[in-house]
C-alpha cells in the first residue's frame, strides 16, 4: 500500500514522541437502543478503546446539528450519533429525522473542509453489544488515522494571525 505523506509524517511524529495520537470522540446515544447496546457491551465485558464519551439523549432525533458543530468546535476529533435501527425507533420515526439531518450535516461539514467521515451515524440496537464495540473501535481507529480535528490547528493559526495584527 502506498503511504500518503501524512501517514509518513504521523508515523515520524509518533516515533519521535513515542506517543500516538489519541482522538477525542463524542458519542450521542439514544436511550432505548444504542445506550442499551452500549450497556450490553459492558455487561458482556467487550473491550474497546477509551477515547469516546457517551452522551445520552432520549432519542437520536434530539441531537441537534448545532450540538455536533459545537463538539467539533470544542475540539472533538470525531462525533458519533447512534440510534435505533429504522423501524425500531422507540418514538416511531425519530431516527428518520435524525438520518436526514445527519446526511445534510455531513454535506455541510464537507463544505467546511472537515472530512464528513468524522461524523458517523450508525444504528445500534439494544442487543448489539458487539456492534457497539466494533463501531466504536473502528471509528476510533479511523479517526486516529485521519489525525486531529483540523479546526484546532486552524484556531491556532488564527490566534497567531490575531497576535500579529490584532493590535
Amino acid at each position: 500500500m502506498k503511504m500518503t505523506s501524512t501517514q509518513h509524517e504521523t508515523q515520524a511524529a509518533t516515533a519521535a514522541t513515542g506517543e500516538q495520537f489519541e482522538p477525542k470522540i463524542i458519542a450521542f446515544c439514544c436511550n432505548w437502543c444504542s445506550y442499551a447496546g452500549a450497556d450490553l457491551a459492558g455487561v458482556s465485558r467487550l473491550q474497546m478503546p477509551t477515547n469516546f464519551l457517551v452522551l445520552r439523549a432520549m432519542c437520536s432525533a434530539r441531537v441537534d446539528p448545532e450540538h455536533v458543530l459545537r463538539a467539533f468546535s470544542k475540539g472533538a476529533d470525531g462525533v458519533m450519533v447512534l440510534g435505533c435501527h429504522p423501524a425500531d425507533c422507540h418514538y416511531i420515526g425519530g431516527n428518520y429525522r435524525t438520518r436526514r439531518r445527519i446526511a445534510l450535516l455531513k454535506m455541510l461539514l464537507e463544505q467546511y473542509g472537515l472530512d464528513p467521515e468524522r461524523l458517523k451515524l450508525e444504528w445500534v440496537s439494544a442487543s448489539e453489544g458487539v456492534k457497539f464495540q466494533n463501531t466504536v473501535t473502528d471509528f476510533v481507529e479511523m479517526i486516529r488515522e485521519m489525525g486531529p480535528n483540523p479546526l484546532i490547528e486552524a484556531e491556532k493559526q488564527h490566534k497567531a494571525e490575531r497576535a500579529k495584527y490584532g493590535h
Binding site: 458543530l69 459545537r70 467539533f72 468546535s73 463544505q111 473542509g113 472530512d115 483540523p150 486552524a154 488564527h158
Partner: peptide, 8 residues
C-alpha cells in the same frame, strides 16, 4: 460555530 473552512 465553525466560522471558516479548514483543511484536513
Amino acid at each position: 460555530i465553525i466560522k471558516r473552512k479548514v483543511t484536513e
